[in-house]
């Protein structure tokens, strides 16, 4: 939460300073009327809003397209076991993540249907035995250890609690990559001010911590009385 507050300050106040004040440094000798001060203030606020909500996100995130459009809804309707049909647990308890060609090849050895993406997939990837360089919306930094097993098997959570309704999507969203950190906007959160409505809107450390703090028995850290650092970090 604190990070969010800070962000607000960053995004709204600072540009206001830049846009509004610096071109006209306040000087004691300048004659100003109350009205012009007010106007100045309102204009500055408006400018900073535009910068903060529109221009800044554009600058911060570069938009990337997935190599192939993937229709989750269609696939879910074809398989028996919902998400786990393709995103399954391996025997050692690790999570397979995004399927490799190996799993797709059974159905996609030949081009099915009319879709252009399907044709690209089969010809460019399956036929050439190349893996699809998917852009993973939920990819976390390398220092993060995340156990799907602990959440799905241990705590009986639903996929949607973190990943939202991606299973119902018919097209792959644009992947927005943060130019500074190199991570997806899904991690940082769609809402530039940092507010979130749904549990899957954001995947930052504080979001993990929020949920971990609610559950009992998660106070193994002597430093924070919350979960110990190693629970999520490696």
């Amino acid at each position: 939460m604190s990070a969010v507050d800070d962000k607000v300050t960053d995004l709204t106040q600072n540009p206001a300073d830049d846009a509004g004040e610096s071109p006209h440094p306040p000087s004691e000798s300048e004659e100003t009327t109350g009205g012009s001060i007010l106007l100045f203030f309102i204009l500055g606020l408006a400018a900073s809003m535009v910068i903060g909500w529109v221009i800044f996100p554009k600058l911060l995130y570069s938009e990337k397209k997935q190599p192939i459009n993937f229709n989750h809804a269609l696939h879910v309707s074809e398989v028996d076991d919902e998400c786990e049909s393709c995103h399954f647990f391996r025997e050692d308890g690790s999570f397979s993540g995004i399927p490799k060609n190996e799993q797709c090849i059974d159905c996609h050895e030949e081009v099915n249907g009319e879709s252009e993406d399907e044709a690209i997939f089969v010809e460019e990837y399956i036929a050439k035995d190349r893996e699809v360089p998917w852009l993973v919306y939920s990819r976390q930094p390398d220092c993060v250890f995340f156990s799907h097993s602990a959440h799905v098997n241990g705590a009986d959570m639903e996929c949607a609690e973190c990943h939202g309704h991606i299973g119902e999507s018919e097209k792959s969203r644009v992947y927005e990559e943060n130019r500074i950190s190199g991570y997806s906007r899904d991690i940082w959160g769609k809402n530039i001010a940092g507010f979130k409505r749904n549990s899957w809107d954001r995947m930052k450390m504080d979001d993990c911590a929020e949920c971990h703090a609610e559950a009992d028995g998660h106070d193994s850290s002597v430093q924070t009385q919350k979960d110990a650092c190693f629970v999520c970090h490696k």
């Binding site: 939460m1 604190s2 450390m205 504080d206 924070t224």
Partner: peptide, 9 residues
Amino acid sequence: MLPFSFEWV
């Protein structure tokens, strides 16, 4: 540090 921070107890 503010009470919102992860480390706050």
